[in-house]
Design a protein around this nucleic acid. Structure first.
Length: 480
RNA sequence: CCGGGCGUAGCGCAGUUUGGUAGCGCACCUGCUUUGGGAGCAGGGGGCCGCAGGUUCGAAUCCUGUCGCCCGGACCA
């Protein structure tokens, strides 16, 4: 028994010993990802891609429900187009990859492989927006983008990553801000209701906001190792890009006006967040609502008469009930299968053996708690549906406790540093609004500003770093 | 990009110090026995040692370059 246990643990690195290695082990051994021959470019394997497809389906539904349309723009941006907005170019230039040669010909103008598509959308918007009647334009595209990062990690930092980027144009500033907030709220709902990841919602500071944006809204999640992960951002651009790209329309008073713009995106990095939020030393744990397989059926002693047939007969029943189930009929031992699907984070395991068939029951085992339960086959669909809901709720609750138990308050830089060193997590302080104080916090406590939460509190009247009058409460943390 | 570590079979590693024709465990294939927590026995297949140069009669081993991976820093979704 003790020997068996040891064998399981040896499969992946202990998360408390080496969280980064644990993370890489899970990505590989749960068959989410594979490395390719180019640094930072990864193969998303079917099981990993299926998680993305589930996230896509949920988000795409919410986008459509709020009136957005999908479209597709080119992947290459001429240099001259990219350079039209100054802040934007400066932000992205260091990580752009360029196409300079096609076949035997050197191009007259080099083409950037899109790191994001604001400029392309602007070029297109300039063509199609002429009247207030053309607004709003509520567009989204699913695609991949390229950013030549120095350091790369599965899901968390790819050079090419999959995402969606929404780009919208509005008649008024108020409408655009409302849109920015609406999409921000959709990301928060995705995280909390589907991914079981509690979020802190707020705005980025001037220093941390998107290149070219007037305001960046963010949701920040806390990982198991107490580090922060930004998971979905939403930007309000004002009319800066519209002016730079000469997008104008005739308004209701027959005057020329510039439209107000937003963009918002979420990426496959979210999958990394799911792994680091819920996983444990037996591998991945997937929230039922996005798990590609919600129930894995494992026949026990499947060579015995009637076992395989009885197990297989459960699948159409579960499918009928809207449950994503699969059966493993390979000739691996049951123990091997148990460990395998735990590694893959399947929320529920259903065991069916000769003894169960005799008693018209099966065994249901939860991935999150390991709890085993004998369930009459007659009640199968209801029991499973209830258990999946309970697992979803439990994962959220656990993550919420982690967030709450590791969110602290500090009144001085020294106190913030001490908390970060001893406990990790988020530290909230008051802040004067000066970038110098952000830099100082980074230097002396190793934390960057994560966000200025919407739910502001008055912890003090003075900035914790310089003592000047405070303007905002800020969450600080060590970020991925 | 800077510092450190590492590239030998699908995975994990030994062999490199002292050059001499590549090995172990797991995985894989075949057969039999097994099957309620990663099964057992027997047999079998697979690697020009990351890549490119160089030194040498001879290079996994020595030299130069290069690419990649991991950890930490700086940069970022």
């Amino acid at each position: 028994m003790a020997k068996d246990k040891k064998k399981q643990v040896e499969q992946i690195t202990d998360m408390e010993q080496d969280f980064a290695q644990w993370y890489t082990d899970v990505c590989k051994k749960a068959e989410l990802i594979d490395y390719s021959s180019v640094k930072g470019l990864f193969t998303l394997r079917p099981y990993g891609y299926a998680i993305w497809e589930n996230i896509q389906a949920i988000l795409d539904g919410m986008f459509k429900d709020t009136g957005h349309e999908n479209l597709y723009l080119p992947m290459l941006i001429p240099e001259s187009l990219l350079q039209k907005e100054k802040d934007h170019v400066e932000g992205f230039a260091p990580e752009c990859a360029w196409v300079t040669v096609c076949g035997e010909e050197t191009l007259e103008e080099r083409l950037c492989i899109r790191p994001t598509s604001e400029t392309l959308f602007c070029e297109h918007f300039a063509d199609i927006i002429h009247s207030w009647r053309d607004l709003p334009k509520l567009y989204n595209q699913w695609c991949s983008v390229l950013r030549w990062e120095k350091t790369t990690r599965p899901f968390l930092r790819h050079r090419e990553f999959l995402w969606q980027e929404g780009h919208t144009m509005h008649e008024t500033k108020e409408e655009a801000i409302e849109e920015t907030e609406r999409m921000h709220e959709i990301y928060a709902r995705l995280c909390e209701d589907y991914l079981a990841m509690p979020v802190v919602k707020g705005k980025k500071t001037e220093k941390e906001k998107f290149s070219g944006a007037e305001a960046t809204y963010t949701i920040e999640c806390m990982m198991h190792d107490k580090k922060a992960l930004q998971n979905g951002t939403s930007h309000y651009f004002g009319d800066g890009f519209a002016r730079a790209f000469d997008i104008s329309f005739t308004d209701r008073e027959n005057k020329q006006a510039y439209p107000f713009q937003t963009s918002w995106g979420i990426t496959t990095r979210t999958i990394g967040g799911i792994i680091m939020t819920h996983g444990d030393n037996n591998g991945l744990i997937l929230p039922p609502r996005i798990a590609p397989i919600q129930v894995i059926v494992i026949p026990v002693a499947q060579h015995k008469e009637g076992v395989l047939e009885a197990a297989q007969a459960l699948l159409p029943r579960l499918k009928e009930a809207g449950i994503r189930a699969r059966i493993d009929v390979s000739d691996q031992s049951p123990g091997w299968k148990f460990a395998e699907y735990e590694m893959k984070g399947v929320p529920l395991r259903l065991e069916l053996g000769p003894k169960d068939i005799e008693k018209e029951q099966c065994v249901l085992v939860r991935r999150d708690t390991g709890e085993k339960r004998f369930t009459p086959l007659a009640e199968l669909e209801d029991s499973i549906a209830a258990l999946l809901e309970d697992i979803q709720a439990n994962l959220f609750q656990r993550a919420k406790e982690n967030l709450e138990e590791h969110s602290f308050t500090a009144r001085s830089l020294e106190e913030a540093r001490a908390i970060q060193e001893a406990r990790g997590g988020f530290v909230k302080t008051m802040w004067c609004g000066e970038e110098a104080c952000e830099l100082k916090m980074k230097e002396e406590a190793g934390m960057s500003s994560r966000c200025m939460p919407f739910e502001q509190e008055t912890l003090d009247t003075r900035c914790a770093i310089c003592g000047a009058p405070a303007k905002h409460m800020v969450y600080w943390g060590v970020a991925y």
